[in-house]
């Protein structure tokens, strides 16, 4: 038994040490380190006290980890608006996700399954805009949102973001096209109306597609920066991705001698990116599905 394990291990090592494999693994580990170092360094800095941050030889792993940076950022409401910003992000993101899922699912069904006058024409008109350069999109949006009184409004953002619907529409249309027609036929014979068909027969088959659309929209809206910056004037309305850009140099003045701005800011960055990183790690197979279904199709 032991002999078998050792021989397994040694053969595994030999396989890894084959010239081709060594190159593969070494270069992949190098790439992973490049990908991870910025994140790891920030997480590590967020766990350090002032003293440890300013030490002459800082280490990647904190020697005496502390959560004080986090408690400072999350509880000092007189100085940091982080909890409020997180709440704003959550509101905007959830609103956008729900709106986009509803709109894309309904339209995807119509373009895949229903026949009505001008259907294909409308579909082409929806996709032709992808080929037109968006010149003053942001400037025109500023004017329009101001006119609609949707600037400085979370509702405005939650309506604006899901309007970039092309990819979601393709994904949903593709999902509905994948359902065999025979499944609908029995229900049609029973005299089901179009909404009944959609709700009871087809919808249960596309929950996976809806999940893909929801996750992509969630990641996009949570991280949106430029449009939010343009539409939001007041700090108490800012989403977290926008608010963290304004922390630099500011928190340094307020922190106690125990903490440093470098540490508290790092803590804020970690809090701001945690929701997307967690969702990504937990639900990563949906991302690849979304990529293959939506992006490549484009």
């Amino acid at each position: 038994m032991v002999a078998r394990i050792t021989s397994d291990v040694s053969s595994a090592f030999r396989r890894i040490l084959r010239p081709g494999s060594v190159l593969v693994y070494v270069s992949l580990f190098a790439i992973c380190i490049i990908c991870l170092v910025p994140v790891v360094w920030t997480v590590s800095s967020s766990l350090k006290t002032r003293e440890e941050l300013y030490t002459a030889t800082p280490t990647l792993i904190p020697k005496q980890p502390t959560l004080l940076n986090y408690t400072w950022m999350l509880t000092r409401e007189d100085m940091s608006r982080l909890p409020l910003n997180m709440w704003n992000s959550l509101k905007v993101t959830m609103g956008a996700v729900i709106i986009q899922c509803i709109a894309a699912t309904l339209a995807g069904y119509a373009f895949a399954r229903l026949e009505f006058r001008g259907r294909d024409l409308i579909f082409y008109l929806l996709i032709i805009l992808m080929f037109i350069p968006r010149a003053g999109g942001l400037m025109a949006l500023y004017e329009e949102m101001d006119f609609l009184h949707l600037r400085n409004s979370h509702l405005g953002l939650a309506l604006l973001f899901p309007s970039a619907i092309s990819v979601a529409l393709f994904v949903m249309r593709q999902n509905f096209l994948g359902i065999p027609r025979e499944i609908e036929e029995a229900a049609i014979v029973d005299g089901a109306s179009t909404p009944q068909l959609f709700w009871h027969v087809d919808l249960p088959f596309v929950t996976g597609g809806i999940a893909v659309v929801a996750i992509w929209e969630y990641i996009y809206v949570w991280g949106e920066y430029l449009t939010t910056l343009t539409m939001i004037d007041f700090p108490e309305l800012e989403t977290v991705s926008l608010a963290v850009t304004k922390l630099q140099g500011w928190s340094a003045h307020f922190t106690s001698t125990l903490l440093a701005g470098y540490g508290t800011e790092s803590a804020a960055y970690v809090v701001a990116m945690a929701p997307v990183v967690l969702v990504f790690i937990l639900l990563q197979r949906w991302f690849v599905r979304g990529l293959t279904e939506g992006i490549v199709k484009m």
Partner: peptide, 9 residues
């Protein structure tokens, strides 16, 4: 992973 992070972060 870096792709899904908010661009500002």
């Amino acid at each position: 992973m870096p792709v899904i992070l908010p661009i500002s972060i």
